[in-house]
């Protein structure tokens, strides 16, 4: 990893952190736990496309740990880690399958798996099977927000590619 790459990745991680923080200030769109835009995922998707899976994992981990340290509690760290990890595995495999094409599809699958991961944590913590009633809501929201972040990543990648990789 050369200095330029290290700097770029650090910048992207901070960008993801900033996006995550600004998003957490917005009031919840729907009063259902687990539904959020997931805008910070744009950065993960970008790194996945412009660099590789290992670098994207690094940026994601830095973002999750820093956000938990700076503004979160231990609880949200657990949700973020499980959702984020499952989402990342899904996105990395789909991205590899498509050779970086179709960021929307990649992101939609990421969104679906992120929400499944969060629901599994919620199920494990509350131990009430009734929380599975959230599954259809979470899947639909994962598809919609995934499509949105995927489109964002497509357009942002178009411009950032020239900046990051001259």
């Amino acid at each position: 990893m050369n200095t330029r790459k290290l700097t770029n990745l650090a910048l992207l991680a901070v960008l993801a952190l900033a996006i995550y923080y600004v998003e957490s200030l917005l009031p919840p769109v729907v009063p259902i736990p687990g539904i959020k835009l997931g805008l910070a995922n744009i950065i993960t998707l970008l790194v996945l496309r412009l660099y590789n899976a290992r670098n994207a994992a690094l940026v994601l981990l830095v973002r999750i740990l820093l956000s938990a340290l700076l503004f979160g509690q231990a609880m949200s760290l657990l949700y973020s880690l499980c959702g984020g990890l499952l989402c990342f595995i899904a996105m990395a495999s789909v991205c590899r399958l498509f050779h970086g094409h179709f960021p929307e599809l990649t992101s939609i699958l990421g969104g679906i798996f992120h929400n499944i991961g969060q629901l599994l944590v919620a199920l494990a913590l509350t131990a009430v099977p009734g929380v599975l009633a959230y599954l259809p809501f979470l899947l639909i929201s994962g598809i919609i927000t995934g499509l949105f972040t995927g489109l964002c990543a497509r357009f942002a990648g178009h411009y950032l590619k020239r900046l990051l990789m001259p």
């Binding site: 009734g130 929380v131 009633a133 959230y134």
Partner: peptide
């Protein structure tokens, strides 16, 4: 349709 969940308080 939907249960109420307070995840921080489980």
């Amino acid at each position: 349709m939907l249960p109420i969940t307070c995840l921080p308080h489980r």
